[in-house]
């Protein structure tokens, strides 16, 4: 294998245009190292280290949009006042993401590109209707984050392209949260994760809501049915419970009922209740 560290995005994209099929991009390397050890990268000829690409760095708020470079680490997310202000659920997700050592290296771009169903950054990105700016040698395009994973551990990105940054709609709601359920408190891989953003009008009716579910569906996704069910209604305990039921049914519909559904369906309903409880009148 070759190990290449291009100095800029243009050189990296030129290289991928010729050798994309045989090349694995390395950002933090926390997934790549494990895939390599597991023998999943035997056909690759090159490792392309993207650490020097300035275009992938930085966090910025401009023209009512939040920009997060694909090379931004979970630690940087955790410490960013800008992200805390405009996408607090993403900061919340960074506090429970692996341990300190991994957060110091793992990037948001790597987390999304790896397309693991339990990628914790995806549900918080989805509630902000985030799009990824994807570049290849011939140009750039915008793809919604939800469309990047085409299946568990399968990305729809073409092999000649790099995620440059994510563009998020800033949080305008008063309530937002991310929670996950894992096997233990620290360093747990998510069994189920959920990001929610919600707001109420003067009459106490839900005027804005975004719900995104991760880990328990093959690819993280936005739960439109639940959002539609709740819009314009006064959030009582019973209503949230019913909405949680719809969410559980939607999840079962996406994944197909399996043995684990017995605990997963009540768990998803419970997690939904727990997150939205502060919004109940």
């Amino acid at each position: 294998m070759n190990y290449i560290t291009p100095d800029n995005l243009k050189d990296a994209l030129n290289f991928l245009a010729c050798h994309g099929e045989d090349t694995e991009i390395v950002a933090g390397g926390t997934d790549v190292m494990i895939d390599l050890r597991a023998g999943k990268l035997e056909q690759k000829k090159n490792l392309l280290d993207i650490r020097n690409l300035a275009e992938l760095k930085g966090i910025d708020f401009k023209d009512e949009k939040l920009f997060i470079g694909a090379g931004v680490t979970l630690t940087e997310i955790n410490r960013s006042d800008t992200i805390k202000k405009y996408a607090p659920a993403l900061v919340k997700c960074s506090t429970t993401f692996a341990g300190r050592q991994i957060r110091n290296r793992a990037t948001i771009g790597g987390n999304v590109a790896h397309s693991s169903p339990c990628g914790d950054t995806i549900p918080p990105l989805v509630i902000h209707e985030a799009v990824a700016l994807i570049a290849n040698k011939t140009g750039e395009k915008l793809i919604p984050v939800e469309a990047i994973a085409s299946g568990p551990y399968q990305s729809s990105l073409s092999k000649d392209s790099i995620i440059v940054k994510f563009i998020l709609k800033p949080c305008r709601a008063n309530f937002t949260d991310f929670q996950k359920i894992g096997r233990r408190k620290e360093l747990a891989v998510s069994r189920m994760s959920m990001a929610i953003m919600a707001d109420k009008d003067e009459q106490g009716r839900i005027s804005f809501i975004r719900v995104s579910l991760g880990a328990c569906t093959p690819i993280p996704q936005r739960m439109d049915e639940v959002e539609q069910f709740l819009m314009g209604k006064i959030p009582t305990q019973d209503l949230i419970w019913d909405a949680g039921k719809i969410l559980a049914e939607k999840m079962a519909g996406v994944t197909g009922r399996r043995a684990s559904s017995v605990y997963k369906e009540p768990a998803v309903q419970g997690l939904f209740m727990r997150i939205l409880y502060p919004v109940v009148l």
Partner: peptide, 12 residues
């Protein structure tokens, strides 16, 4: 910064 050296390439 503390990191896991098992998850990092020597090249990094």
């Amino acid at each position: 910064q503390a990191i896991n050296s098992c998850l990092m390439f020597g090249a990094q």
